[in-house]
Nucleic acid binder design. Sequence first.
DNA 1: CTAAGTGTACCGCGTAACATAGTACACGTG
DNA 2: CACGTGTACTATGTTACGCGGTACACTTAG
Lengths: 133, 133
Amino acid sequence: MAQIQRNQPLYEQLMWRIKAQVASGVLIIGEKLPSVREMALIEGLNPNTVAKAYRALENQNVIETVTGKGTFIRANDEFTADEQLIAILQEQLGEVVIEAKRASISVQELHQWLDSCYSGKPHSPRRMHGISH
Amino acid sequence: MAQIQRNQPLYEQLMWRIKAQVASGVLIIGEKLPSVREMALIEGLNPNTVAKAYRALENQNVIETVTGKGTFIRANDEFTADEQLIAILQEQLGEVVIEAKRASISVQELHQWLDSCYSGKPHSPRRMHGISH
DNA sequence: CTAAGTGTACCGCGTAACATAGTACACGTG
DNA sequence: CACGTGTACTATGTTACGCGGTACACTTAG
């Protein structure tokens, strides 16, 4: 095992970290990412794990890799929404909603979460229904 | 392997199928689920796999199991939203949103998806934004 | 050209999760 | 009692994950 018990593979966690930075504007188009070995030192991972994340990100057209130079953030021009991707996203959203309903989370609050995720990063503080201890 | 290549474990798929039926009202509180061995025949799974799903669902207070009688849908009274669960849901929602943004899906459409998931089941047909090449 | 840095491709190893098969036990109902 | 119920356990095989190590092709800087 790597560090702690996670339910998500390490290379996927790294992928989401990079994706989030791209979406939030921390990483700009054309910017160079740390090399595989460098990122491995930064994140405390094995270079192979980082390489696996980079390879997967390139398959999703998030980054572009030039064999001797490095990996760079890629512009997502002409990214047509695949029908299969739509279905997956709707299913994943459905799972979140089912859990949220069980947790007695209102639709309004979910809409606020959605806007928070879509616009910037931070989530608005959770509004408890009349609790204050 | 069981049937086809899935990225989600079989027992989790069964869990979500049951959860969705509970959320949509197909399964009512107190209703009896098929027995472990019966469900195994229906779904084409191993009884152990079904038992694993049932055990996990009981840990989440979705169903109630009486040792000699069977398993029944449970009312989720007094289900307080755990802070950790909130964080997980927000993170999962964030992942969906990041992917949706990359796929050029508008916020409005995501809100429609959310409402569809929350109220009933079927998704409204996907509205293309004026593209016809 | 040489050297360093880059991504990539392997192979092996160990751990864990997943799914199956089979058996057995404790419980409730008829 | 016999039957169906959930549960527990052992065992086997497969797969994914992560690490370690090595090697190769490529680009850039010296």
